[in-house]
Write a protein that binds this DNA or RNA. Structure first.
Length: 190
DNA sequence: GATTGACGCCGAG
DNA sequence: CTCGGCGTCAATC
């Protein structure tokens, strides 16, 4: 609150086959945001930078951006929650899309869904001892760490795909890359 | 308060 | 199958 986020955010990027990924880091190297694949380098950078007053692009630390790309393409890679900035009292987080403990808890719960598996919005709510499944959807829609925190693995209870920032088509694409069977936009044998 | 969700469930066509 | 209508509750206005 009292703190200013005058520090510049550090942005690293990675591209592969005309898909551009970006990651924003704090001064101490915690991940603040990630992007879904974008069509250009500029778009990828601005997906991160538009949330901050100052930024600088350096590719010293582009492993995480590459990791995004790998996960998107179906590689199974582990996430250490310690890599993420999840402290909602941290000054950087004030420009984040997550601002409440509920939202943070949803993000943490989603991060636990294993590769190649899916969970419903309702199941996430239940894990949090809540019936606020709609609020779960809203919180996931704000996920600052798309791909890294696998919000693409959260689907509707009836087996339908559900929403996605990058469009349901992209959600289906990622799930297929993880080996999940999908027919007519419904999870097959979930 | 009232409205709005990346939702869920049931019942009517 | 689709579509209301109601349920539920966190966030936002």
């Amino acid at each position: 609150m009292t703190k200013k986020k005058t520090d510049a955010i550090n942005i690293s990027t990675h591209n592969h086959n005309d898909l551009y990924f970006a990651v924003g880091f704090s001064e101490i190297g915690k991940i603040l945001r990630t992007t879904l694949p974008q069509k250009s380098l500029d778009e990828a950078i601005s997906e991160i930078s538009r949330h901050y007053q100052k930024f600088r692009v350096s590719n010293d630390n582009s492993e995480t951006a590459k990791k995004l790309c790998d996960i998107y393409h179906g590689n199974k890679l582990d996430l250490d929650l310690e890599e993420l900035e999840l402290n909602i009292n941290e000054p950087y987080i004030q420009t984040s899309t997550i601002k409440t403990t509920f939202e943070r808890d949803v993000i943490i719960e989603v991060s636990k869904i294993p590769y190649g598996h899916v969970k419903s919005y309702k199941q996430i709510a239940k894990s949090l001892n809540s019936h606020a499944y709609r609020a779960v959807g809203t919180a996931i829609g704000k996920n600052p760490f798309p791909i890294l925190v696998p919000c693409h693995r959260v689907i509707r209870s009836d087996g339908k795909i559900g929403g996605f920032r990058g469009g349901t088509q992209m959600k289906v694409e990622i799930l297929k890359n993880e080996g999940i069977e999908i027919e007519a936009f419904k999870i097959y044998n979930k």
